[in-house]
Amino acid sequence: MIHPLLINLRNLAIYALFWLLLTACWAGLSFFYFRSPIGLAITDSVVYNFSFAILSIGLWYTVRYSNLEKLNIVNRFLHHIVEAIIIAGAWFLVCYLILRTLFSTNHDYLAKQLASIPIIIGVGLIYYTVSTMFYYLVISYRNLQEKIQHESELKALVKETELSLLKSQINPHFLFNSLNSISSLTITNPAKAQEMIIKLSEFLRHSIGHKEDQMVALRAEIDQIMLYLDIEKIRFGERLRYDFKINPQCMEFLVPAMILQPLFENAIKHGVYESTEEVTITFNCQPKAEGMNIRLSNNFDPEAPPRKGNQMGIRNIVSRLKLIYQRDDLLKISKSQNNFDLEITLPYPI
């Protein structure tokens, strides 16, 4: 956190003006009320107030420090009392030494100074309290601003994610092409047509039913993905292959619902749609100390002309992961000549 007074010249100027005003008041008081000579009153006021003005700038760091340390309230209070006494005492001592060298012949004045030690120390304590409270105010104000901003960002993200999730739920072309395949199978292979209708229905039921903030066991996600792949396999036949290696320990791990489905859709869209050769999707899942490690990769036709793949699917997953786990380093993408690799680390549910 940057010092609120040193952040710009304007704040520093206001601060200086405030202390000049205070200095004038102090000088005025000793001139009119205590009947000090004008020169003496001004010098005295300048020494005391200017020195505290400089001292007070440094107080910011002690406030910051105690704030960062997250001391409990009693400790913090004690800390400030001790600090206040030390600072007020030191402040008086230094000012007194300066004034004594300046007015070494004016014994009357110096005696008066020593007599008014309690008053000056008291003023020092008040100065200290006001400065410290000001800094606390600044810190809590900044924290509040930060929180408000963070919250509005989060809200925007939730909206965006919800919207793109709605859009990406069921791809109508997937549905129509699957229905066309079923239409064909009713003639060539009625038993398989029936099987496919059941699989498609199960797939749709799950897609429509889930809530996006739900956590489900990996097993449930895999079941859903299997349905999806089985349906696509009827369309694409030998062009689509898959290979799943899942450590049994991972099966009950809780994952956000529908987090993997869009990634498989992506693999099929960029792999199988664009290739006449066999495309293999491999899925690997291993437990890790921090949670679970998932690797998903597919080969693709390197000769296939680049299509502007909208990265909607992947971006959507990244923002959902960020929303759920407050981390944006969980998904890693790497692409080689003919292979697309995704690595996701899913932490233990919070």
Partner: peptide, 12 residues
């Protein structure tokens, strides 16, 4: 057509 069932349907 790149999908076998779709081709089958047309030929049928």
């Amino acid at each position: 057509d790149d999908e076998q069932p779709a081709r089958d349907l047309i030929s049928h």
